[in-house]
Amino acid sequence: MINKLARPCAPTLAQPRDEEFDHATRLVAGFVVEIVSPGSEAMDSVTKVREYASAGIPQYWVVDRDGAQTVTLHRLSGDGTYEARARMPLAWLLQTAPADHLD
C-alpha cells in the first residue's frame, strides 16, 4: 500500500486539512471522482489510476471535459486494475443517486 496519494479533484464530505492529508489517505475511500483538467491528462489517466488501484479504492469515476462532460465509471477488478463499466453524460448521472452506481 502506498503512503500518500494524489488528491482527487472532487472534494469529499470530510475534506482533511493539508496537515491531516497524509494520515487521511491511508483510509480507503469507497470511490474517487477525478475531473480531467487540461494539461493534467497524463496524471489523471495514468499516474492517479495506478495509485488509486494500489490503494484498493473499489470505484474510480472520471469526468471528461468534453461537450457532454462524459463520466466513465470504473470498477477495480480482481487483478488490481480498473475496468470501465459505464459511460454517461454528467447531466444524466446527477439525476441519479450515487448509490445506484456503487457496488
Rank of each mutant, 00 (worst) to 15 (best):
V46D: 14
G78P: 04
T47Q: 09
V71S: 03
H74N: 15
P98F: 08
A97T: 13
A53R: 11
S77W: 00
I57F: 11
P89H: 04
A55L: 10
S77Y: 00
G67D: 14
A68F: 09
L76H: 04
A99G: 10
L93V: 02
V49G: 02
Q59R: 06
A68T: 12
A68L: 14
Y60M: 03
D64Q: 11
S77R: 04
V46G: 02
L94A: 05
P58K: 13
Y82N: 00
A86R: 15
L94D: 00
D79K: 02
R50F: 15
R50P: 03
I57E: 01
Y82V: 01
K48Q: 06
S54F: 09
W61C: 07
V71Q: 05
S54V: 07
D66Y: 13
E51Y: 06
H74L: 15
L73M: 06
T81Q: 11
V71N: 04
V63T: 02
A68I: 07
L93E: 00
L90I: 07
R65Y: 08
P58Q: 12
Q69G: 00
T72I: 11
G78F: 10
W61E: 11
K48F: 06
R75M: 05
A99T: 14
E83T: 02
M88D: 00
W61M: 09
V49L: 06
Y60R: 01
A86Y: 14
T96S: 14
R65K: 10
A55Q: 09
W61L: 08
M88P: 00
P89M: 08
R87Y: 01
V63W: 02
E83H: 02
A68Q: 15
Y82M: 04
L93F: 11
Y82D: 01
A84E: 13
P98G: 03
L73C: 05
Y60V: 01
T81S: 07
Q59H: 12
G80N: 09
S77D: 12
W92I: 02
V46K: 13
R75Q: 10
R87L: 05
V71R: 01
V63Y: 02
V63S: 02
R87N: 05
V49C: 04
R75A: 10
L90M: 12
W61F: 06
E51P: 07
R65T: 12
E83M: 00
L90N: 04
K48M: 08
G56M: 11
T81F: 09
W61N: 05
M88N: 00
T72D: 07
A86T: 14
P98H: 04
E51Q: 15
A68E: 15
G56Q: 11
R75P: 00
L73W: 01
L73Q: 01
Q59D: 10
A55Y: 02
A91E: 10
R75E: 10
S45V: 03
Y52G: 01
D79H: 09
A86D: 13
E51G: 10
D44E: 06
G78D: 12
V62F: 02
R65A: 14
T96H: 08
T72A: 10
S54M: 11
R65F: 15
G67H: 09
R75W: 02
L93R: 03
P89K: 13
A86W: 13
T47V: 13
D64H: 09
G56E: 10
